[in-house]
């Protein structure tokens, strides 16, 4: 199971990094592979590799801003939440994503 995530906030110096770290910790703790990109006032950091996106089963976008290059995720299930949700309740965000993935697979 591979997850790619993008976190974003206005400044890009605190919440986006916190959300990235929180998602990474929870996903890895449950045995998933995850790659996280951070977006914000500073630009894009740790940009996702195309091969990771290609491999990804699920996309999580935790952002308060409109993220750049969202078209990279076309054809993938995308779970969108607020950045604060990923900071405070990363487990719930991951559950939400997995639920979406299940539904998406059933519909397919």
């Amino acid at each position: 199971m591979m997850i790619v995530a993008v976190t974003g906030c206005m400044m890009g110096i605190a919440h986006s990094h916190m959300a990235a770290a929180a998602l990474k910790k929870i996903a890895e703790g449950r045995g998933f592979q995850i790659a996280v990109e951070v977006q914000g006032g500073i630009g894009i950091s740790y940009e996702l590799k195309p091969e990771d996106i290609e491999k990804a089963d699920l996309v999580i976008i935790a952002s308060d801003i409109k993220i750049k290059k969202e078209d990279r995720f076309a054809g993938k299930p995308v779970c969108k939440v607020k950045v604060a949700e990923a900071v405070k309740q990363p487990g719930r965000v991951l559950d939400k994503g997995l639920e979406l993935l299940n539904k998406w697979r059933k519909d397919k």
Binding site: A14, H17, M18, A20, A21, K25, V38, S45, Y46, P90
Partner: peptide, 10 residues
């Protein structure tokens, strides 16, 4: 900043 975030989620 990244490392600070990683510390704070511990």
């Amino acid at each position: 900043l990244k490392e600070l975030a990683e510390l704070l989620v511990e």
